[in-house]
Write a protein that binds this DNA or RNA. Structure first.
Lengths: 228, 228
DNA sequence: TCACTTGGTAACTTTTTGGTAACTTTTTAA
DNA sequence: TTAAAAAGTTACCAAAAAGTTACCAAGTGA
């Protein structure tokens, strides 16, 4: 069953961004725009985890945090503005499990959520395969290491992630925009040609290694990791 | 089977902090908010160990301690406020096995628990490898000693723990935040660049010693202890 | 109390990366 | 056959990340 997350955040944009990312990761997301609503929705749906903004009008995050703590042990992650150092202390005092400083990276948020859920026992987020093996090619995202024909090849993050993504679904074509969405993040606004450049760089590392796979251009569409 | 611990502590925050840490270490934790409840839960679940706060309203820690001692030899660790020196004497008089002064470090608590359990025979906490050996490198967390190329090298705690953590999962990359969570504790409030500095200090101690391993930077991701 | 150790911060330097722009080549379709 | 569109390629640069150094605050022990 899906893990449910309640977002209590008055800034609509931040909330939507979070929601989009979390849903993509398979979480069931509910959003509350203020503290009062947050508490109400909390009681209604009893989520597995709460993301709670500190700065909110009327009923602030700490009040909500204490209120939730008074009735259950649901993990709470606070979202605090940068510089408010005391928040860290407050957080623990009021029973928060972790806190994230704005502005935050989505990856950061996901990592924290998984960490907190892991800590609070029970819920286990099933992890995907982090290691792909093809003929003379190993893509290991745990070691963050690319092995080509038995040799380790230094490969920057973006290239690793792009290759890993393509190779996770062999023979499937992705458009540049799909790749930008999935690898760069849907909040990336740049030239789609940047994909070409990364493909080029990957090809330099991979060319002539094996007959059984290659990074193929699908003209007018995009790229795929082709496996014969 | 998991080792069970009963926490009797009226301060919800402290209790939760303890619970979180202990569960992460694999203990089965039960919490009681006051002395009466504590005694009741003690009788219900017969835990392997009791963490008992001294200062509690209604029925204080000493009473609970004596009550438990009257019926079993279950190890008891008292949690006392700083300055209450007499507690030490009281503790022994009332049959406590150990005592810890607030505010305490979680690591301290874990160490005490393991020590007490070891002493009270019976329960054996199967502990992980506390000693890692690589080519010309010995990381001994029991002796808290680092041996490089046959020579002991004075190494401060944080560096030892960081190295030990990284070396416990060779070739696996950890981000700075993961390392902060795991080595510094998830309740650490500080700059993630502090990891860099510790890595630097470790490298000074380790550089040029062996070809078969090294502390490697994974650009854009984090660090790993690489073993060839 | 004072000297020493440790852990952490801040500031500055160096390295690496990701992305853009410009130019070239290939493919498609009229 | 040729022009337009798409993709390949190259070089370069600003920003991000990591390395490095110096310094400071808190804790420790003599």
């Amino acid at each position: 069953m899906a893990v449910s997350v309640l977002i209590v955040e008055d800034d609509r944009n931040i909330a939507e961004l979070l929601q989009m990312y979390l849903e993509k990761e398979g979480y069931a997301v509910t959003w509350a725009a203020d503290g009062g609503q947050g508490l109400a929705k909390y009681r209604a749906i009893k989520p597995d985890l709460v993301l709670l903004d500190v700065m909110m009008p009327v009923m602030d995050g700490w009040s909500v945090c204490r209120a939730i703590r008074a009735e259950a042990q649901t993990p709470i992650i606070m979202l605090t503005a940068k510089g408010e150092t005391d928040d860290k202390v407050n957080g623990l005092k009021n029973g928060a499990d972790d806190y994230i400083t704005k502005p935050f990276e989505m990856k950061e948020v996901l990592a924290r959520i998984e960490a907190v859920l892991r800590r609070s026992s029970g819920v286990t987020t099933e992890k995907k395969a982090r290691r792909l093996v093809f003929d003379k090619l190993i893509i290991d995202m745990d070691a963050f290491e690319l092995t080509v024909d038995g040799k380790k090849v230094d490969t920057p993050p973006k290239e690793m992630e792009l290759l890993f993504y393509l190779a996770s679904s062999p023979n499937r074509v992705y458009t540049r925009n799909q790749l930008l969405d999935e690898v760069w993040g849907f909040d990336y606004f740049g030239d789609s040609r940047t994909v070409d450049v990364h493909v080029k760089r990957l090809r330099e590392k991979l060319e002539g290694v094996s007959e059984s796979w290659n990074l193929k251009t699908v003209w007018g569409v995009g790229y795929k990791f082709e496996v014969l």
